[in-house]
Design a protein around this nucleic acid. Structure first.
Lengths: 240, 240, 240, 240
DNA sequence: GATGAATGAGACTTCATTCAT
DNA sequence: GATGAATGAAGTCTCATTCAT
């Protein structure tokens, strides 16, 4: 669970990854590709090989970056995990930085999809909020995407372009949609007015969940779902 | 055959360092020391020098680590920024990792102080919350401590010991105090019950503030104070 | 998801010295490879290159270590002498210490060969001794192996494992064989009894030869062959 | 006895000098000074302080150099062991190399004394040889001088001047005296003629003793005295 | 297209030496 | 004279990137 001693760099002998190389390496790959690549691109005849490779690299990169951060991750390990040669990475990505950025972009983009359509329905805002919470828990928190967001948080400052992209393509859109929903809810008296101006307050527990779990998950587990429910209950409490 | 002169190492002239001390180097030092060092320790005759140096290094390290992260920060730059020689760092810290950890420990520990005493007073919980928000804004958000927390968030996973320390020495205490306050507030009907179980919900906007500002501060400024006020208003809204 | 093992790092297994090749790299390489590598393994198309490099590094390392000792030798110079880049060394040896130890092991191991078979013959012990002296002079004293033994003597204390290896794999075997020979010789009255218990006395002039030549060879040359002959004459003098 | 792991340089914490600093540090100092400094220089009033310091440094240096070799020994440790400040060393010795050379010179010079007078007596050569063996065992082998000779052997090649000095001032004189003795012995038929030309053969077991003990003393102890006796018995065996 | 050996800039760390106190 | 904090050259080792096969 815990990432172990940080100073891994100094140990002379590599910590025996033993089985992990075979088993663990693919685990992420099995999940991620569907997310990273538009359907249909996978099934091709021979040319598909290239796309597969790309996927394998991205999946492996996610594992390594998530585990060690951008600087500490080694392309050597990414290659090993992807089951390819180190040089091959450079056939698909200009350099480490590009790999990192494309990984994050690829993983972050599809998040929006679900949210933007939510505003259409006419169900009670609280129900909507609970649905959003479920989506977050299942599609983000219990997913590799949680790690992607964590990476974004940890490294974002050093990749301003990436942060901007994330804001423009993801956050601003989500908050746009959210704001619309909250506005309607406020109009109906279901939600406090203030949320409209600061939809971040609505999302804050998600952020807490990701960070808390990452840092203190082992020492002080957090029941994320219940926390988010509590938050919703507070926001949507009937007010006088 | 004959090895000739054994390693006759000559020290080159100190020419290089001559005008070394750049004034800009002190920028952070001007702020941090007050935090890092107990008042009065500065003026001494003997040990003071050492403490000063230590402070200068910590201040410079904060700048570098905050800007680049643990791995990417170079001790060379830390030294340059502190206006000292590279080797001097090692007179005060065993290695880069120790420097990093001591920096965070030194900056994080004093955070608790202010919070723990808050529970004693008997003023309305909302007022207390607003006071806490002010403390946060002035003592953390508008301070280098904001960067320290950001560092903790970004690198914490790779320094489990540090994360544990932070949880044990800082967070758990703050939440302990917070929980007591909220309990009393809930008993008086000022605060929703759920906050007692999840005091994280109370602190969440602070987290949002730090991360948002760090990543999107330039693109999409956030009025942190107002956001936190909105949050308080929602939590303490009279409920039916 | 979970950070799992801290490192996916694997120890690179060097596919042994299996593949081989000669053709020297530099001065010492011209001599050493024949010693370090079994003949006939040269032909391979693929691995040959790697083995060559390895040989070149070992040869260069021998030069540098012999000239300056373990600590003072610089890998930079080893690389330069081998005609490769600094980093390349680390593709073949984990670190400086490993390089040093593998060098000594590789050079010392084959020494035993010649000696162990000597006991089989039935020629007079004195003739045997003279033959051994010739082997020593040609295979050790006039060879790079002389330097290796010098290194072993000079640095052995700081590498107890290596010293133990040398004793176990080389010396004890040689002395075993020697003792058998001397025992037979003593039974025949050709050799003084005492030599059986202290075969070191038989080998002592070899040690003297190596050390004397190393230290005073230029100032006070020593006719090693004649000295060893004198020693043999004394030991095998007919006694009353 | 054994120097421990060779890679001491890499361990983060210095091998626990703990007790050694107090106890071990003085051990050598207690013995060496008498050797290093002409009698009478010690007892002065106040000025003696300087000579004492010098002695302390030399004694400490011997310990450190013997344990780690010239390159690996750190002046910091020498100072610590001598109970002085690092900079003080430079008040007495120009630099590390000078310290090393003066140490060896100081320790090696007095060795000759005893030997040169031996030739005067008229006792049987074998008795003389046995006496010399006793002197060697007590004054060299069981003494710090053994380490000095070991150092000479290990580092001599890198300090040609020192080797030359040793040869000129020590070895050549000893062998001169030895040769005279052996010549007389040979004339009387007590000793084989050949020894006169190669007195090294007489001294060889001493060399073996020092080196063997240093390298394999722990694994395969050697009864030095008996070995030397055996050697003498062989050399002086009545011959037909 | 793939490979992986090779490269070499660059990071951390050590330690002989200096010098202000 | 002593001190020991400070210096910075130098050494080991890592790893992103290249390129011949």
């Amino acid at each position: 669970m815990s990432p172990g001693k940080p100073a891994a760099r100094k140990t002379k002998k590599r910590a025996g990854t033993a089985g992990a190389g075979k088993r663990g390496a693919r685990s992420a790959a099995a999940k991620a590709p569907a997310v990273l690549v538009p359907d249909g691109a996978t099934g091709g005849a021979r040319g598909a090989r290239g796309a597969d490779r790309r996927e394998a690299i991205l999946a492996a990169a996610l594992d390594e970056f998530a585990e060690r951060g951008f600087e500490a991750a080694r392309l050597d390990d990414v290659a090993k995990r992807a089951g390819i040669a180190k040089g091959t990475i450079y056939l698909y990505f200009r350099d480490k930085e590009t790999l990192f950025q494309e990984l994050l972009r690829a993983m972050l983009t599809p998040i929006i999809g679900g949210f933007e359509s939510l505003g259409q329905t006419d169900i009670p805002t609280k129900k909507l909020a609970e649905h959003m919470r479920d989506v977050f828990v299942h599609e983000v928190f219990e997913t590799r995407r949680k790690d992607v967001i964590r990476l974004m948080i940890a490294e974002g400052r050093r990749f301003p372009k990436l942060a901007e992209f994330y804001y423009r393509e993801v956050l601003s859109r989500i908050f746009e949609a959210l704001r619309a929903i909250l506005k309607r809810g406020a109009a109906r008296g279901e939600v406090p007015e203030q949320l409209v101006e600061f939809p971040q307050l609505m999302a804050a527990p998600g952020l807490v969940a990701i960070i808390w779990t990452g840092l203190f998950g082992d020492i002080a587990p957090l029941d994320v779902r219940r926390m988010m429910q509590a938050h919703i209950d507070i926001l949507f409490a009937p007010r006088s």
